[in-house]
Design a protein around this nucleic acid. Structure first.
Lengths: 206, 206
DNA sequence: CAACTTTCCGTCCGATCGGACTGTTTGTGG
DNA sequence: CCACAAACAGTCCGATCGGACGGAAAGTTG
């Protein structure tokens, strides 16, 4: 072993397996991003991953299992984004919360999650695979928020407001993303930060 | 050729055409609701509408045109929901706004719009058909809000908050809709009404 | 090193997709 | 009343879908 020019002339089975699976899942993720759920076919993924048809079907016997793996991948990426510690400057904790949630929603993984999400509405199998993951993500966001602002009497509510509101904002920006003139989302985000300060303050003195 | 048991033994061509088109569009709408975008195939719509293959293709030469018609249908339904006058009780105008927007989001037409929306992200043609409609809907909501609350210095901002927030809330309830235990959405809605009252009041005195 | 397992590969299959096509029925204008 | 156009119907086609299958290659173990 330890060749210099060869990437890995001899790999153990586990390594090969993991590498191939990762390539396939990443290819599926990319297909989901640029083509949507329907375009994420076995053939397209297989071609993009650069593996043979049988190889893909060997690792993921059915398309549903492939998509389930993509669900995990997407969740992992979003969790990674949320795990990144934000800068908690005193007096601007809620601004940091807005930025944190917004960063998650701007990540490509959110678009992929959105595709899976909508598709899961009418696909029981995908729904079953997606529901627990969504719950994990949900609690992860709330935990991240709690990490930024301390104990706040209305912390959970305001966090929920922020999540839902920014999600809606991100949705509205879906179609107008490329070539945004006034950047609607930025305005909403800035004003929500102000309002959030009001709401957090009012609740503190009430 | 005047049968008695026939509902309308002789109709003008325009009537027949309109009736058939309406049947087809409604069938496509139903397919979109219960099967999603990908399942809304020409065959499925044709079968559901009870027309022959050639008939559908005669009215809508391509699937894209069919979906464009569905876009208009969905927009019309949502506009109809928004046109319904809400009860503007003094001091609770913003509550009425929340209820109005929420009613729109609870309508099946929103689910259909969501399918089209997400699909449009990766489909330029659909996107082109959907963008102007979305703009119409957007302004319609703001107009409806303006009709409920009068001139409010931050009316547009608060309306936007409400739209985005409730949209996000509706999205979160997508997967857990059937068999809702605590009904997350209801809680959020109630608390947002309170917060909205605070935000509207604060801005009025500031 | 030989037997074995696992990963990888390419081809084939039935089903179904969107769309093209020709023929038939129905309403309309000269 | 009759020729014409439009609405309606059914069949066929190439492409592609998800999945099945048997064989070749790489890695593991006696």
């Amino acid at each position: 072993m330890t060749r210099v020019s060869e990437p890995t002339p001899r790999r153990t089975q586990a390594e090969r397996r993991a590498a191939t699976r990762a390539r396939v899942v990443e290819a599926a993720f990319a297909c989901l991003l640029e083509g949507g759920y329907a375009a994420t076919t076995v053939g397209a993924v297989q071609q993009r991953a650069g593996v043979a048809r049988g190889t893909l079907l060997h690792h993921f016997p059915t398309r549903a299992e492939l998509l389930a793996a993509v669900v995990d991948e997407v969740a992992a990426r979003r969790l990674q984004v949320l795990a990144d510690p934000a800068a908690p400057e005193p007096g601007q904790e809620w601004d940091a919360v807005v930025d944190l949630v917004w960063r998650d929603l701007q990540d490509p993984a959110f678009l992929a999650a959105l595709e899976l999400w909508v598709a899961a509405r009418t696909d029981p199998a995908l729904r079953a695979a997606l529901a627990p993951v969504q719950a994990r993500l949900f609690s992860a966001v709330h935990r991240a928020v709690a990490g930024v602002v301390g104990d706040h009497p209305r912390g959970a509510t305001l966090a929920q407001f922020t999540i839902d509101l920014l999600t809606g904002t991100a949705m509205a920006g879906l179609l107008s993303e490329p070539g945004s003139p006034g950047d609607h989302a930025e305005v909403v985000r800035a004003r929500w930060k102000e309002s959030l300060r009001v709401l957090a303050g009012v609740s503190a003195e009430a």
